[in-house]
Nucleic acid binder design. Structure first.
Lengths: 249, 249
DNA sequence: GCTAGGGGATTGTGGAACAATCCGACAAGA
DNA sequence: TCTTGTCGGATTGTTCCACAATCCCCTAGC
């Protein structure tokens, strides 16, 4: 049964175009993770349906997808809201992150060259963005760097799990006033980690990774708890309506 | 703000009744993981909607939830089907399992007593089922045992991740002819692992866990590849129609 | 100042309709 | 005989509409 067309199989996925619900979810996911939709914003079915020219039913299917990814929360008879992350959530995210990235480090010996190269590529991108002073892009590249670390394991499910985690983490970044203060201290440590990986020092890499993630978690949690200052990235006053202030707990 | 009603918070979830889509998804998930819906079965919107007396809209929202959990696959303009696991999927599942359960073992020092006790509880249930010759229940208890191991980490997200993984794994069990042949050899090793955890031998537990999961993976993958024999759990001939045979990759 | 209740808006769910698409069968041609 | 074009039936994809349920806010009354 195997023949000369086997190479096409990989591209088969491109054939089935995404459904409308999938596309809507993609658009909303981008907007949320880019910070264009502030945490707490209510996503009205009618308003969004009109803006995206899709029906309420289709929109609701998209909401299900995003709720499953924890990017929005469903409140019965009240609608869906962009998720507001609590400090506990951040701590929990880092616990899972540690497990996944550790799995990547430990799989170093059996890693494919492409997977390993992706780590360095992401790191280079982060430093280029740093040199340009573009701290938003630095944040993106940093997340990609860590996705690449977990990706060393070569597992489809680990990749997806990390991708979700990183999208969720972006919600936390939105709660930290200064992107620069958040990312700058960790760029050099990324460099250290990448070096250890490239020289195959697995145990040292694991120690560094653990310490790194613990520190990062502490920084974000602290910024969230005493963080009363925002740098004005909140789009406009509509976010301050009453529906935002009530906690999700 | 904290008061005498804090204990009620845990049960708050029971208050907001689940939406119809959620309930439908729950029912279907149970049927799938219990093996009542064989992999490859097509889930007709009209037939299912009639059977559950819900509208197509609601059903489609439920399908989105299940597709996100990888229990069903969406094929554009063709409908949704109960997922058929490939050997590669099983291998991948075990990779993630190892990462999550290892995280549990490593968190042993800071584990709560309840979390640790859950490991022994699940194990006892498995052995009771074994004594009764109920191998289906043994399979369930075995999955709960491993969920408890990962649960030692005390992370909400790790728990959810494991729960999904276990549901998915059930699809693989459906491809193995003999439940007894699958589970029996591993019951004793569960016992060993639990013992190491209870005596706090973290490193040994981790080694045993790794070896355990590698062996289990090998058993299932082998059973799936050369598994031409089924024990007749496939409901009827409708499963053999052409739409089932094409791979999902 | 607090409780109770009404009004308005939005969601939850069902139902129907139409277009788009896929599958299988049949027919035509080499 | 094998391949290719075409047609018809069935199911999904998506939209629109309707109505009940629920929640929030505001006002009235004590």
């Amino acid at each position: 049964m195997t023949g000369v067309f086997d190479a096409l199989t990989a591209d088969r996925g491109r054939l089935d175009r995404a459904s409308a619900a999938q596309r809507v979810a993609d658009v909303l996911r981008d907007h949320i993770t880019e910070g264009l939709l502030a945490p707490g914003t209510r996503l009205s079915e009618e308003a969004l349906g009109e803006a995206l020219t899709v029906s309420r039913n289709t929109l609701r299917e998209a909401f299900r997808l995003l709720a499953d990814e924890r990017l929005v929360v469903h409140k019965m008879n009240r609608g869906v809201f962009v998720r507001i992350l609590e400090p506990d959530d951040v701590a929990d995210i880092y616990t899972l992150r540690l497990a996944l990235e550790t799995a990547g480090v430990r799989a170093l010996r059996s890693a494919t060259p492409e997977r390993l190269a992706a780590v360095r590529t992401a790191l280079n991108r982060a430093e280029a963005a740093e040199a340009a002073g573009d701290w938003i892009t630095v944040g993106t590249a940093d997340l990609h760097f860590h996705q690449a670390v977990a990706g060393i394991a070569g597992s489809e499910r680990i990749d997806e799990c990390m991708a979700r985690l990183m999208a969720e983490l972006r919600l936390a970044f939105a709660a930290v006033p200064s992107a620069r203060g958040l990312h700058a201290p960790f760029l050099r440590r990324n460099q250290t980690l990448a070096g250890l990986l490239e020289t195959g020092e697995i145990d040292d890499a694991e120690v560094e990774l653990t310490s790194y993630l613990n520190d990062a978690r502490a920084v974000i949690v602290r910024a969230m708890t005493d963080g009363s200052v925002t740098d004005g990235s909140v789009p406009d006053g509509s976010v301050t309506d009453s529906s935002v202030t009530d906690g999700s707990a």
